[in-house]
Amino acid sequence: MSKPKVAFFDFTSCEGCQLNKLNLENDLLSILELVDIVEFREAMDDKADEYDIAFIEGSISTPTCVERIHDIRRRTKILVALGACAVNGGINAMKNLYPADWVKEEVYGEDKYLFPSIPVQPVSALVKVDYEIRGCPMSTPEFLHVLKSLVLGRKPESFDYAVCVECKLKENECVLDKGMFCLGPISRAGCDAICPSNGQYCTGCRGLVSNINENGAVDMLKQHGFSEKEALNRMRLYCANDIEN
């Protein structure tokens, strides 16, 4: 079997996920044994026309993005949305909550006409996404898991349960009990509860578990002393497109 051709593309994002991949240092050589990396702006310049696997980082926020993502979809067999921005719009999608003109004015001032901008959408809103790697930034172990799975030709594991599960597996002290805010009970796992394990709270960067009880979640946070407004605002940080009211 020849090595799959893998490409990475960045759209609207901080490119932190790509940098996170370069942090794989020890494993990079082994990864190159598994796949051929043909397009990766942060690391090299080569370009190839067809790919086996395209990893997409960033959200869709300009007309150019729309064109590019369709072009990439045509040229790749498997498309993987990588990181919160690509999977569900991420932090960028918060701008959708405000009037578009005001946002442009606020960001670009008088140059706003030079920067055409559309409401932020996840990659899946425009093209078929085969697999997702969630998180802000994506977790490197999960990236490796997906890469290995795709090389094996199997569907990667996806985790549609709460961060609480991973927190409890690690026997962490509950950060909500410490009086901190936390979205762990309703946010998707897969990060090995990295934030609560390191004294931080869960910001929900991997999106919400599907089929959640939204009212229950707001009530839960209220019981821990947070207002409904704060609860919803914090849920919107990474899930602006998913939280209604």
């Binding site: 290995k148 349960y161 709460a162 597996l169 009970p185 309703i186 959640i212 009880n213 229950g216």
Partner: peptide
């Protein structure tokens, strides 16, 4: 209930489990 599963995971008599395969590089 928000379905986080904490009650199951910390229960001294719960024993259900999942099994997953993971490969090396």
């Amino acid at each position: 209930c928000v379905g986080c599963g904490t009650c199951n995971l910390l229960c001294p008599t719960c024993y259900c489990f999942d099994v997953r395969d993971e490969v090396e590089l």
